[in-house]
Amino acid sequence: MAVDERADLPKGMAELAEDFHAVSEKERLQLLLELSQELPALPERYAGHQEVMERVDECQSPLFLAVEVVDDAPRTVQLFFDAPAESPTTRGFAGILRESLDGLPAEEVLAVPDDAPYRFGLADAVSPLRMRGMVGMLSRIKRQVRLRREAIDAEGRA
C-alpha cells in the first residue's frame, strides 16, 4: 500500500497500519493476537456493568464498548472494550482501535474514514467477512463521540 493511502488516518493509526503492512500475512495474525492480549481490563466503573456499555452486534462474538468524551478543550476521547478471551479476533480489532484512537481529540476520531478498518491488510488474513466487526465498532465509536461531544457543548451553552 502506498504511504499516501494512510495519509488521512490519525498519526498513531497510520503507524499501526504501517506495522501491519511491514510483515507477512501470517505475522499479521500474530500481531493481532498480541493486541488482543494487551487489551486492558475494564476500569471499576464498567467491570461487571455491561448494561451501561453498548453491545456491538456486528461482531461475531459479543463485544461491549464504552466511549467517554472528557470535558476539556480538545474533548479527549477515551475508549473501553470488553470481549471474552475466547474471541481473540474481536479483542484484536478492539485493540487496534484502542491503540489508534484512545486519547485523541473528538475531532480527530470523527475524521477517521469509515473504511479505516480495511487499511491494516487484514481482510485477506482473516477473511473480508470477519472485518464487519471492526467496521461496526468504528461506526458506533464515532456515533457515541458525536453524541457525547454535543451533550458537553450543550451543557457549556446552558
Binding site: Q60, S61, P88, V126, S127
Partner: peptide, 24 residues
C-alpha cells in the same frame, strides 16, 4: 469461528482448518 482462537492454545497435535481461508 474465530480465526485466532487456535493460536491461543489448542488440543495437543491438532491443526487449524479455517472455514473461510481454507475451505472457501
Amino acid at each position: 469461528e474465530d480465526v485466532l482462537l487456535y493460536d491461543t492454545g489448542h488440543i495437543p497435535g491438532a491443526l487449524k482448518l479455517d472455514w473461510h481461508l481454507d475451505l472457501n
